[in-house]
Amino acid sequence: MKPDTHDCALTAAERSLREIVEAGATNKVLRKEKLSDTIVLFELDNPLIARNAVAGQFVVVRPNTLGERIPLTISDADKVRGTITIIFQVVGRTTMELARIKEGECVPDVCGPLGTPSEIENYGTAICVGGGVGIAFLRPITKALKEAGNEVITILGAREKSLLILENEMRELSDELILTTDDGSYGIKGVVTGPIKEMLDSGRKIDYIFAIGPMPMMRAVAETTRPYGVKTVVSLDPIMINGTGMCGGCRVTVGGQTKFTCVDGPDFDGHEVDWDELKIRKAYYFAEEQAAKEMAAKEEN
């Protein structure tokens, strides 16, 4: 049996959970950074989410009281400071509205951590592939894979140099870093699948590949590795509303089975994903999204 004093101290520490929980979270933007012209970083005050967040999980965010709920991968969680970091690319109305929130202001709604954590183990040699803003989401997974003992090769790709974010952070986390840009303005000219194929063809032993980024990139990675039979996990981002398995808006077909990305994912076996269906489903509200984007752009000016 533990001594009384210890119990008391423990209780005091634990009571603080009730206090934290009862107080809720402010979601105050403690730090706002522009990582590129279109990519924004927020460090948010949310000790509740920071406590339990692990690599691969996401939050659902709403930028204002009329706004849409969108999923954003948690890029970093600081348990000591009680903060989480989210990084997003301004692509449409909701991200434009989110980007308008200033340092010191609060994001009205942030809910998480959601989704099933990534399966992290010592696979041997792992390639972490990140495209565009997906690089931000790759960071916690790369870190976790490295900590689990993997030899980590990181391949980052972007359209052009200015969109290639977090280079230094990712270099520190990786045993080897390869950069590609579509226009050749930095690193290897071309797309991420080039170096992957080269490595696989060279006979180098690759045990695990994790890819996160735009859907066409993840699909291309999965198609590249398919003939080699290397396990390839992708992190999907379909249209999502609720994030807790309530609506099924984020349905994807994986291995012939319908899965809810929000609770069964977001990580799935890239070789099993029905990419054609996902592409169609992601475009469900394309017309509406375009109209909303134009409207928001007008507001901006």
Partner: peptide, 30 residues
């Protein structure tokens, strides 16, 4: 079942009742 145009009752009602998508684009959810 995963064609565009097939929804669960929960998604349909959540979009409209909770997210107020019937007032899109005033509200953000389409």
């Amino acid at each position: 079942e995963n064609l565009n145009g097939v929804l669960s009752g929960n998604e349909w009602l959540t979009r409209i009742n909770l997210m107020r998508a019937f007032r899109f684009p005033e509200y953000g959810t389409p």
